[in-house]
Structures are given as C-alpha cells and as structure tokens.
Computed example of a mutant assay.
Amino acid sequence: MRHDLSIAVVCSSNQNRSMEAHHLLSKKGFRTKSYGTGSCVKLPGVTVDKPNVYNFETPYEKIAEDLRNKDLSFYTQNGLLNMLDRNKRIKGKPEKFQQCKEEFDLIVTCQERVFDQVLEHLNEREQVSMNLVHVVNVEIKDNHEEATLGSFVIYELVEKLSNTEDPASDIDTVIEFLEKKRNKKFLHSLAFY
C-alpha cells in the first residue's frame, strides 16, 4: 500500500541538504517541498570568516551570477555553482519555512537546531486545522557528499513510511528500524497545524 504523503525537507538555508533530498524525493515521485529556517541564506565564501549572504527572496540564478562574478574558478571548484544549477531546475529561489502556509504530513529536518526552529514555529503559530504533523530530524553535515548520503536516508524513511498500513501509527517502528540499520539517532516529535 502506498500512501501519498506530503513532505517538507528543511535545512538552514534551503540550498544544499534540503534541496538534495527535495531533488531525490521528487524524482522518486513524492510530493515534496523544501525550506530553510535561517534568518538569511549563507553560502561559503573564499574565506571562512566571509560567507556570501543573501535574503530568501534572491533567486538561485542571481546567487549563481553573483558567485560567478566574484570568483568563477573558486565557486566552480567547491561545487557551489553546480549545486545552484541543480537548485534552479527544482524551483526559482530558496523559501523560508516560517513563511510557509502549507500543511504537510511529514517534515524532515537536517540538523537538530533546524528541528528545534521548526517545532518552535509550529508551536507558536495559531493552530487552525489541528491536523497532526510528524517532525523527524535526520542529522546531516552540511557538505555536498553528506547531503547526497543524507538524501538517501531521508528517501528510505519516506519510502518505508509510505508503504506502511498507517504511517502515523508506524512511524516509531520505521524510525527504530532505520536507527539500527544506519547506526544513527533520529529525533521525532509531533506538532499540530
């Protein structure tokens, strides 16, 4: 049995981890959106102390153009231009989770701090529909390789949930299975819309 779950994947800047998972889940046919929870979009700069900072309204193409103008060779080598090219094929610009009005069955975060921010936002907003949402954190380091590996963990979670009799009831069993298989600890909480 396959359930048509609606899924949100959330990281800090809606650039690397959430977009890699968004890309894979969409390719596999899942209804997926992605978001960031940060105050702004931050990407690595030429030096550690000088990141590239953009607002959430800046299209991926404009960010790529800015980086090409700053240092084409550097941002090609570190993979940012390739990442932005993938992102713009999925959607036009990064989106901020706190501005999202849509409801999801499952929200997967990629970092404990983001998990906390998502729950804080859901708990602070006025609850309208009282629909239940599961929030699960899959800890993923913010680099290209880990984002790719992490997207497969998220895909496995979503795939297993969508094939259970009752995803809401079976989520703990699925998480327990994946924690043992992946030797990874997941965080899980419930919230309401």
Results as ranks from 00 to 15, higher is better:
residue 125 R to V: 12
residue 137 N to I: 02
residue 45 G to E: 08
residue 36 G to N: 03
residue 35 Y to M: 01
residue 41 V to T: 12
residue 17 R to G: 02
residue 6 S to L: 02
residue 177 F to I: 00
residue 61 E to W: 00
residue 13 S to H: 15
residue 58 T to V: 14
residue 24 L to G: 05
residue 129 S to Y: 01
residue 8 A to H: 05
residue 26 S to V: 03
residue 39 S to E: 15
residue 123 N to G: 06
residue 169 S to Y: 12
residue 177 F to N: 11
residue 192 F to P: 01
residue 83 M to V: 15
residue 128 V to D: 09
residue 8 A to R: 06
residue 105 D to A: 02
residue 63 I to H: 02
residue 97 F to W: 07
residue 6 S to F: 03
residue 76 T to G: 06
residue 34 S to R: 02
residue 162 S to F: 00
residue 75 Y to D: 04
residue 113 R to Y: 03
residue 3 H to D: 13
residue 162 S to E: 03
residue 96 K to F: 05
residue 128 V to K: 10
residue 185 K to Y: 14
residue 152 F to R: 10
residue 161 L to Y: 01
residue 81 L to Q: 04
residue 168 A to R: 12
residue 157 L to M: 09
residue 126 E to A: 09
residue 59 P to L: 13
residue 63 I to T: 04
residue 139 E to W: 00
residue 113 R to E: 14
residue 144 H to Y: 03
residue 55 N to H: 12
residue 90 I to L: 15
residue 102 E to I: 07
residue 46 V to Q: 10
residue 68 R to D: 11
residue 125 R to P: 04
residue 189 S to L: 05
residue 31 R to V: 10
residue 132 L to Y: 10
residue 54 Y to H: 08
residue 179 E to F: 00
residue 191 A to P: 09
residue 178 L to E: 15
residue 51 P to D: 07
residue 101 K to T: 13
residue 48 V to E: 13
residue 128 V to E: 10
residue 181 K to A: 07
residue 18 S to G: 06
residue 112 E to W: 00
residue 149 L to E: 05
residue 100 C to H: 06
residue 53 V to G: 02
residue 7 I to W: 01
residue 20 E to N: 14
residue 120 E to Q: 11
residue 150 G to F: 01
residue 91 K to H: 10
residue 94 P to K: 02
residue 90 I to A: 09
residue 154 I to M: 07
residue 121 H to Q: 11
residue 127 Q to H: 05
residue 181 K to C: 01
residue 66 D to M: 00
residue 79 G to D: 07
residue 38 G to C: 05
residue 132 L to S: 12
residue 123 N to F: 02
residue 50 K to T: 15
residue 62 K to V: 09
residue 96 K to Q: 14
residue 65 E to Q: 12
residue 116 D to W: 01
residue 117 Q to K: 07
